[in-house]
Design a binder for these strands. Structure first.
Ligand code: FES
Ligand code: FES
Lengths: 165, 165
DNA sequence: ATATTTATAGATATTCTTATCCTTTTATAC
DNA sequence: GTATAAAAGGATAAGAATATCTATAAATAT
C-alpha cells in the first residue's frame, strides 16, 4: 500500500510542474503536464479538472490556454492537495480502521500510530508546492529541467516546446 | 487513503486476538475471530489462510481446531504482518510513486518523506503483536474483553463462548 | 463569423481490492 | 469406519480506483 493514491501522486507532481511554470509566467497545457510528469493524459485531465473545480489551480480554455496557479495561490500545501484528492482519512482516521479514533477509546496501536499520523500531517502542512517547485526545477524559463526527477527518463526538452506565452 | 489495506487491518486485528487467545492456551475458530474483530467472515478466512501459508500463524483442522500462534512465534511484529499482506512498498517506495527512491536521484518530497517512512518502519518493527495483545485484552482467560476496542460495539461474550480447549 | 485550440463533461473500459459462495481436505469424536 | 467440525482451495461477484474515449463548451486568432 502506498501512502497516497495514484490520483494524489499525479496531482502533486502536476502541481509542482504547473507552479514552477506559473512562476515563470507560463500557462501549461494538459499534454505538456502529462509528458513532463509521465502520467496518463486522460486520467491527468480528470485530476486537473477536479483541482480546478475546487479552485486549487486555475485554468483557461482556448489557444494559449492551459493550467496555471496565480501568484496569490502559490502557497498551497501538500496537505491542501492531498485532502482535495484523497480526503482527510489519512490525517484523522484510526490506523486499524475502527469507526472512531480517540484517546478515550483507543485501538491497540493508537499510542504508536497517533504521533506518526501527526507527523505526516505536519509535514504536508508545512510543505508548500512552491518550495517543492523551487527544488525540482532549476531553470523553469523554458530550457532545461535539471534536477527534476519526477520521471526517471525525462525528455530534456519538455519545457522548451512551444509555449512561448 | 488509509495507511493499510483492509486486508492488513483485518490481519492485525485478527492476530492480536489470536495471540491473546494463544497466550491463554486456546485455539480460535474463524467465526470467533471474525465476530471478535467485526470483519466479514469469508474475507477473514482468506486472510488467515494466507498468513497460515506464510507460517506467520498456525492452524489445525477438525473439531477443536482453529488458528493459533505457538509461543516461539509470539514476537511477530506489525512489520512482519504488514509486509506479508501489503508487501514492502510502504517501507521502501517513493512517496510520489517514482520508479526508484534514492538520495542520489530524489523526487521533490524525498527529503521530507524519507524520515517519515523510516519512522513508520521503525514503529512497526518495534511493535510485537504480543505487546498489542497485552494492551488489548485484559482478561483473556475466557470471560471478558475489557479495553479491547477492536470493534466499537463488541459483544461482551465473545471469548466465553464454547472453546473450552 | 469561422476555424482552431484547449479545457470540461459524460460515458465506458479495465484492473485491483474487497467480499461471498461452494467444494474439498484434514482432523477429531463416537 | 462413520459422522462431524473446521480449515483450505477455487470460482465468482460486487465495488472502487485507474484509465480511456467521445462529445461539448469556451476562448483565441484570423
Ligand atoms: S483508535 Fe486506532 S489509531 Fe486511534
Ligand atoms: S524519491 Fe520520492 S521519496 Fe525518495
Amino acid at each position: 500500500m502506498p501512502l497516497l493514491s495514484k490520483s494524489a501522486e499525479y496531482a502533486i507532481r502536476a502541481c509542482i510542474f504547473i507552479v514552477a511554470r506559473s512562476q515563470a509566467g507560463h500557462k501549461t497545457g494538459l499534454k505538456e503536464v502529462a509528458a513532463a510528469i509521465g502520467s496518463p493524459v486522460f486520467f491527468t485531465a480528470k485530476i486537473l479538472q477536479g483541482l480546478s473545480r475546487q479552485k486549487l489551480i486555475s485554468s483557461m480554455k482556448g489557444p494559449n490556454g492551459g493550467f496555471y496557479v496565480p501568484e496569490e495561490a502559490f502557497d498551497i500545501t501538500l496537505l491542501d492537495l492531498v485532502q482535495a484528492i484523497d480526503g482527510t482519512d489519512l490525517f484523522t482516521e484510526c490506523g486499524l480502521g475502527m469507526k472512531q479514533c480517540s484517546d478515550s477509546n483507543p485501538c491497540p496501536i493508537h499510542d504508536q500510530y497517533k504521533p506518526i499520523r501527526a507527523q505526516i500531517t505536519a509535514m504536508m502542512e508545512n510543505t508548500t508546492i512552491q518550495s517543492l517547485a523551487r527544488r525540482a526545477i532549476i531553470d523553469a524559463n523554458g530550457k532545461t529541467i535539471k534536477g527534476l526527477s519526477l520521471k526517471n527518463d525525462l525528455p530534456e526538452s519538455v519545457l522548451s516546446q512551444k509555449t512561448a506565452g
